[in-house]
Amino acid sequence: MSRSNKKLGPFNGKHRSTGGEGCQRPVGWALRNPMWNMKAITKEQLPDLVACGLVGLFGLAAIWMGASYPVGSVTRMGAGFFPVAISAIVIGLAVAAAIETLMSETSRGTFKWRPLIFISVAILAWTQLIDTLGLIPSTFALILISGLAKQPFRPVSLILTATFLSVAGYLVFVLGLHMPLTLLGR
C-alpha cells in the first residue's frame, strides 16, 4: 500500500508525483516548515510514536531522579553524573526514533488481549498462592489460567500437565534443591 494513501491530513495520493529533479530539495526546507511532520502522522504510526514517547518519558524520569544524586566533579565523579548523562542520551535517541518513525512505514502483527490478560493473571495468581497455599494449588492455578490464553481451552491436557509439573517441581525443587516450599498449605 502506498504510504501517501494513509494520510490523515489534507493531502492524498493524487498529489504524489513520480519523483525526479524537482524533488531534490535541501534539508533546510524541512526545518523551515515546522508543521511538516504534524501532517504526516498516520493512524498506523500513532502507537509507534507513543512507544517512542514512553522511552523518552523513561529518560525524563531517570534524569529527574538522577539529578537528585550528587554529581561530583570530573575527577571525582558522584553517583549522579553517569545516570544523568545516559538519560540525556536516551531522551535524544527517543526523539530521533520518533522522527525515524515518521519517515518509515510501520507494520505490526495482530494484537489480542486474551493472551496478555490470562498470562498476566496466571503469574499474578501464582505469586499470591505460592507462599500461602503451597506448590500444588499455585501450579494448578498457573497452568489452568494460562491455558485460557489459547483457544480452545483444553482442561484434560492442562490438568495432566499441571499434575506432572507438580510432581516434577516437588522432586527437583523441594527434594533436589531443598527449596523451602510446602506442597499444600503453609
Binding site: I123, I130, I143, A149, L158, A162
Partner: peptide, 20 residues
C-alpha cells in the same frame, strides 16, 4: 498448548528460587 504453560511454570519457580 502443553509447552507454554510448562514454560511459565519453570519461569515462575526459577525466578522465585533465586531469593525466595
Amino acid at each position: 498448548h502443553v509447552l507454554y504453560p510448562a514454560m511459565l511454570f519453570f519461569i515462575c519457580i526459577g525466578v522465585y528460587s533465586v531469593n525466595n
